[in-house]
Every structure is written in C-alpha cells, then in structure tokens.
Design a protein around this nucleic acid. Sequence first.
DNA 1: TAGTGGTCTAGACCACTCG
DNA 2: GAGTGGTCTAGACCACTAG
Lengths: 251, 251
Amino acid sequence: MKTNLNPTDTAQPRYRWLADILRETIDRGMLTDNQALPPERELAERYEVSRDTVRKALRFMEERGIIYSDHGRGTFVSPSIVRGTTRFIDSFSQDTGNRGGVPGQRILSIETVGASMAISTLLNVEAGAPLVRVRRVRTIDDAPVGLHDAHFVLPRGAKISRSQIERAGSLYKLLMSEFGFEPAEAVENLCAGAADAEDAQLLDIAAGDPLLVCERITLSDRRQPIEYCLMKYVSTYRYRTRIAKHSGGMS
Amino acid sequence: MKTNLNPTDTAQPRYRWLADILRETIDRGMLTDNQALPPERELAERYEVSRDTVRKALRFMEERGIIYSDHGRGTFVSPSIVRGTTRFIDSFSQDTGNRGGVPGQRILSIETVGASMAISTLLNVEAGAPLVRVRRVRTIDDAPVGLHDAHFVLPRGAKISRSQIERAGSLYKLLMSEFGFEPAEAVENLCAGAADAEDAQLLDIAAGDPLLVCERITLSDRRQPIEYCLMKYVSTYRYRTRIAKHSGGMS
DNA sequence: TAGTGGTCTAGACCACTCG
DNA sequence: GAGTGGTCTAGACCACTAG
C-alpha cells in the first residue's frame, strides 16, 4: 500500500495534502457551489489513502467553510457567499487582500506606557507595568479606514522601532519572528461608537460619526494574553464572519 | 469490550457522551483555566472507549472553545475568557442568557412584502416575490437594545401571526417547528451606522447616535438562503466572537 | 528518555437519503 | 435496496515536549 507517489510530500500530513488538492479543484472551478464531491470511499481509493484520512481532509475543509457534508446525501462545495468567510487572526491584511484592496498603514506612535488598570487586568500584568503601545491608521487603497491601538508586553529591555515594523512588512510578522509572539487564539468584542475629535481628524470624517469599535485580546499557544488591541473602523468597513451550526446542546 | 455501562445512552454517540461528561467536570470547577485533562490513553481506558473516540470528543470540545490540545504537552481547559465565546445561530437569546440578562422582544409588524432587488438577489428569489417581513424590538431586561428586521420565504399560502410567535416563544423556534425552516449556517456582515429618526424613537436614543449594524443571511441544510435579517444594536450591546488559529496556509 | 498528542490504517457496522 | 456519510475499534508508528 505504501505508495510513495505523494508528490507534495514536504513533511506535510497526507490529509493536508489531499485537502490542498481538493481545494485547488474547487478554486479552479472544476467543482462549483453545491456540487457534490466524489464519495469518501472513492476518494480513498483514488488517492490511495484510508477512508479515515479522507474524512480528516474533509473535516479540515469543512471547518474552513469550504465544503459541507450531509449524512446519507454526500459532501458538497459550500456556496461562494460562505467560502472564505471564516475569520483568522491578523484579519485586516487578509480580509483586505481577499476583497481586492491594498492594505496599508501609517504608524502614529510607538511608545512605552504604564499599563492602565483595565488593560493590566486583561493582559494579566501588574498595573503600571511597562507595555509597548503602537498606534496606527489602517488604510485600504491609501484611504484611511481604521485606527489600531495595540498594547503588548515585550521581553525586558526589548525595543521596537518604526523602521523594524516597516522592514518586516507587518507588526505581527515582526512580533512573531523577533519576539516569540505566537498567537493561537483571540477573542473579539464589537460594538458601535462615535468618533471623537482626534478619531475624526485621523480618519477624515466628522466628530460624532459612527464607528465600528472592536476590542481584541490575543492569546499565546499557552493561552496567556499577550496583546490587547482597540480598533475603530469607519462605517464603510465591513467585518464578515461565518456562524456554523450549533450541532448539539453544548453551549 | 462492549460494556453497556453507558448511562446516558439515548441514541447519543459515545464521543458526545464523553464530551458531556468532560464538559460537566469543567463546569463544576473540578478543572479550571489551563489545567491539564488526563491523557487521551488514560481517558480511553477509564471510560472504556477507543482512543479515537476520546480524540473525537476532545476535537468536538475544542471546536467549541472549551479545551485546547498542544502536541507533546497535553490537553488543557481553555481560559474562561475564551470559553463560551463561540457564536451559534440564534445568538441573541443565547448570548443574552449567557450574560445573565433576560432576553425579550416587542413585535412591531408582520407583513407580506414584495422582495426588493437587493434582497431578492440574496435570497435567490425573483424581484417582487412575496416575502414575510417581521420587525421587532429586542430587549434585555426590558430595555430596548436592538431592532431586528427579518425577511424570509414561507411556503405558498402559509401565514404567520403574532400570537403564533408568542406561543412558540421564539420566531426561529416557530419557523423550525412549523415551516421546515432548518438553519445550518449563516454569514454575518457587521458595520457601524447612525440611527435615523425611527430607529432613535424605537430604541430610545437620539437620531444620529451610533449603531452596530449587522446583516445576516441564513442558509438551510441544503445551503439555500432562507432568511435575510438586518439588525441594529445600540452602543451598549456587545457582539462577542472567537477567532481560532489559522492552522495552515489554507485561506 | 518517557510521556504526550498527531497521523494513519483496515475493517466493521450503523443511520440516513433517495429512487 | 443501494449508496452515502457517521461512529467505533485496536493497533502501529511519528513528532513534539520536558525533565
């Protein structure tokens, strides 16, 4: 059985390899909205893997909103409205890219501040502990759409500079490559707000205009809070998300 | 092996039964934030199931933000900030209940309208096709917090009445029990908006005040769009969501 | 090195859908 | 009834983490 005809075998599990193949088939348009994929047993035979491995690939894709399976009927391609709606961390650049816009940023300030009571509690540090605060204007096609106000803990003595961020291309890439920052999960809290004078000036809108306010806490792989970010978006900005079925009584 | 000592065996799969047990252990506080669960092999032995079944239970819980597993380290209880943050359909009543508030509603109108171009496209019906439109004020502890404006297709000739909704307790329960409405997935689109005169009057705020605007399209099990709902929330309302790690290059 | 989760297999049987 | 996905098993081996 051990056919080593696995062309993309760069330390990648077989189910991921299969998922990539199926994903490409869909992306190429060979399979479109609500069309059925081949049955699991057929995929297993065709790609010379066990049915369990096929199922793992399918579940992997289902979690990402690419396909869905119905008991007794088959497995189908998710309609395009749904596909790609799953949110991931660092959503701004990704979302913007997905929608064909060019994401950009203007760094307003980088400073070390003492943690406020509110933020120190969230980040699980002592009030007054030194935090790095980075404020930025986010842009899409050079138009300002949002303000990001990020607070995070850096290793003692570590510093961060404007040119470093620009060189890395992204604040998060820099934090990950240089400071062991490894986001695993995040919790977001959205609400409506009104622009104050400063927001208005930076976003080129009027004071009092409505804003989408999003607070985020990012957790490390060990589930320690490592970042708090306050984001404010103008009313043209869209936050998309997908809600999967509540398959069971577990809240 | 077939130990039939499965106390909660009401047509429930074994992995769900195990998940329920583990979930209860956590809810009771026997296991708290970031504490390790017993190893998979031990759970398998203790509960007399295969390791694969244990893993299925753990993945089921992980999807719901209750636990997380780290390769080589173990499986741990998610911190409480994260637990219960996963969004499901019919989020309003659930969220409100979770946060200790009493969800309520005031039905403003129930009418049959012709589908607008925008909505007909989304719901995949012809422009002008008859749709049922239900407008409601949602309340928490009797205070108005949001407006829901739902549009959906009903079987030909079917009608819906205020008393029916009130009897069923929930619009969605009624749609599910009486009209074969079976939501499987939904896509939400959030942005900031400003209250117009009518919004303001209904929500007891001032015109121009910021609102959290949320559009939702609900899909059936066959992934046909069955409902469009426009929701507007006052600025004190919080929309919480969890973002899982982007585990892999698949967008 | 010991212990943990991650991947994979081959086969069995059940539950559901649809003609 | 034929075909589909869903559950479950028993065992093997790999990959990662930590003392």
